[in-house]
C-alpha cells in the first residue's frame, strides 16, 4: 500500500464525507430548533432534487434560475409542514413527533414516486467529469464542489446561530415553555428551522443528484446523514462537518482494506458500526451538548 494511494483514498473519502455533512446540516438545523431528529430529511432531499428537475428539465428554466427558485419553493414547503402537521404536536412527547417525521418521509417518497415515477434521472450541473490532478492525487471535481457548498453552508449557519433569530431558535430547542413565557413564537421558530432545512435539502439533492442520479435511492442518504449527525452530536453544525470528514475517511479507507476480505459491501457495515458504537460509547456525539445536571 503506497502513501499516494492511501492519501488519495483519504482525501476523496473526506470529500464524500463532507457531502454527508451537507445532508447532516439539514438534520442539525431542525434538531437545534426543536430537539427532534427529522427522519423526513431524506424525503425532503429527494423532493428538492425533483423540484429542481421539474423547473429545469420540464419547465425549461436554466439551472442558475431553477435552483434558487426550488430553494424558495422548498422554504415555503418547510413552513407549510410546520403549519399543517407539526403545530398540533407542539409540546407533545418527542416520540410522537419522531413518528410524524417518519410518516412524512414515507409520504414524500410515495408522492415523488407517483408524480415522477421510479426511473433515475440526472441533473447536469455542467461540472466536468475530468478528474482533477493534485500532484499525483486524483480528485473528483463534483465532490470538490459539493464539499465547498457544505463548508459554505457551515460558515453561513455558524454565523446565523449567533444572530438574534438564531439565538431564539436555540432557546426554543432548550425549552418550549420558557420560550413562550418570554414571547418567542415557538411555532414560527420551528417553521423557520424546517424551512432552512428544506433549503439545505435542495443543495444536498442537487449535488447528490448529479453524483448518483435522481431517484428514490436519494432518500436513503438519511442513513449516512443520520450517522454523521449523531456522531457529530445532533445539535452541532461543527460536529456535522467534522463527523462527516471522519466517517468519509473511515468508510473509504476501511472499505479498501475490508472489501477484499469480505467480498464487498463493507461500506454499509462500517457506517452501521460507527452509528451503533457512537450511541453506545458517546451518545451526545463529538460536539453535542451535554444534558446539564447540576447537583
Amino acid at each position: 500500500m503506497d502513501w499516494v494511494f492511501l492519501s488519495e483514498l483519504a482525501i476523496n473519502g473526506a470529500l464524500t464525507g463532507l457531502l454527508y455533512s451537507l445532508f447532516a446540516i439539514g438534520l442539525v438545523l431542525i434538531y437545534k430548533a426543536s430537539s427532534v431528529p427529522n427522519l423526513a430529511q431524506g424525503g425532503l432531499t429527494m423532493v428538492g432534487a425533483y423540484v429542481v428537475l421539474a423547473l429545469s428539465h420540464d419547465a425549461g428554466l436554466p439551472l442558475w434560475l431553477a435552483i434558487p427558485l426550488a430553494a424558495v419553493i422548498m422554504f415555503g414547503l418547510g413552513f407549510g409542514i410546520e403549519r399543517v402537521a407539526l403545530r398540533r404536536l407542539a409540546g407533545r412527547p418527542v416520540i410522537m413527533i419522531l413518528m410524524l417525521t417518519l410518516g412524512l418521509d414515507i409520504f414524500l417518497r410515495g408522492t415523488t414516486l407517483a408524480i415522477w415515477g421510479g426511473t433515475s434521472r440526472s441533473i447536469e450541473l455542467g461540472v466536468s467529469y475530468e478528474p482533477l490532478f493534485l500532484g499525483d492525487l486524483f480528485i473528483s471535481r463534483i465532490h470538490l464542489v459539493g464539499a465547498g457548498v457544505a463548508v459554505a453552508l457551515f460558515v453561513a449557519f455558524m454565523l446565523f446561530f449567533r444572530t438574534r433569530t438564531g439565538i431564539k431558535l436555540r432557546a426554543i430547542a432548550d425549552d418550549y415553555m420558557a420560550s413562550w413565557s418570554v414571547g418567542i413564537s415557538v411555532e414560527h421558530g420551528v417553521g423557520l428551522s424546517w424551512a432552512l432545512a428544506s433549503v439545505v435539502a435542495v443543495a444536498t439533492g442537487v449535488i447528490w443528484g448529479e453524483i448518483q442520479g435522481v431517484d428514490q435511492a436519494l432518500s436513503l442518504l438519511l442513513l449516512k446523514g443520520l450517522t454523521v449527525a449523531v456522531l457529530g452530536g445532533l445539535d452541532s453544525i461543527l460536529g456535522a462537518i467534522v463527523a462527516g470528514i471522519i466517517l468519509g475517511v473511515i468508510e473509504n479507507v476501511g472499505a479498501e482494506f475490508l472489501d477484499p476480505l469480505v467480498g464487498g459491501g463493507s461500506r454499509e457495515l462500517i457506517v452501521a458500526a460507527v452509528l451503533i458504537l457512537t450511541v453506545m460509547i458517546r451518545p451526545h456525539g463529538l460536539f453535542g451538548r451535554h444534558d446539564i445536571e447540576r447537583v
Partner: peptide, 13 residues
C-alpha cells in the same frame, strides 16, 4: 435556557 449564556438568554427574550 441552559445551553445558552446568560447574555444570550437575555437576547432571546
Amino acid at each position: 435556557f441552559e445551553h445558552l449564556t446568560p447574555d444570550e438568554n437575555l437576547t432571546a427574550a
